[in-house]
Simulated scan of single mutants.
Amino acid sequence: MAGMDGFGVQLQRGDGEAVEVFTAIADITNLSGPGLSRETLDVTSHGSPDGWMEFLGGLKDPGEVSADINYQPAVHDTLVADFDDTAPRNYKIVFPDTGATTWSFPAIITGFEPEAPYDDKAAASLTFKVSGKPVIS
């Protein structure tokens, strides 16, 4: 297979209840992340073979998720409320592949930037800082 069409991907928001229900965030136009990264630990010593530096894997950073939306205040007000909350909320990305692959993660909204140009649609850019290990299923 040469690739997958990204059309139909969803970013879903959990309701925080004991039996959590996820609802798609409306009108997403672009989605990226989480941008996983890992620190490295330099374990080079005077005895490192042939003078090459040596490394071990260190702590992992789950990164961020970015989303652009067609902004509608009445529809997206819950996201502004999430921005005010200091506790992570559960989100998931559902891919439009045959098996409906999901990435589930708790995150904090760290950026909410609406724009309303006079000659284009109202839009907003959202940034989510993922907290902990994303679960891929």
Rank of each mutant, 00 (worst) to 15 (best):
P134K: 02
A124R: 02
E54V: 01
W52Q: 04
V21C: 08
S32I: 02
E115D: 09
P49E: 03
P88S: 04
L126W: 05
D27P: 00
M53E: 04
T86N: 15
E17F: 13
V94I: 10
A2P: 09
A67V: 05
L11T: 05
A116K: 08
L41A: 09
W52Y: 14
D85G: 10
G35H: 13
V9H: 10
F7L: 14
E64H: 15
Y118R: 13
R89H: 11
A81V: 12
P96R: 00
L11Y: 06
S32V: 02
S32G: 07
A116H: 11
I28R: 02
N70S: 12
R38A: 11
S104M: 08
D50S: 04
V21F: 14
Q10E: 09
S66G: 11
E17G: 15
S66A: 13
P88I: 03
T98L: 14
K92H: 01
G99L: 07
I108N: 08
E17N: 15
A18L: 15
A123W: 12
Y91I: 02
E54M: 01
L31I: 06
A24Q: 03
A74D: 15
A123V: 11
K92A: 06
G99V: 03
G51R: 00
T86Y: 15
S125R: 12
D120M: 14
I28D: 03
D50K: 05
D97M: 01
P114S: 02
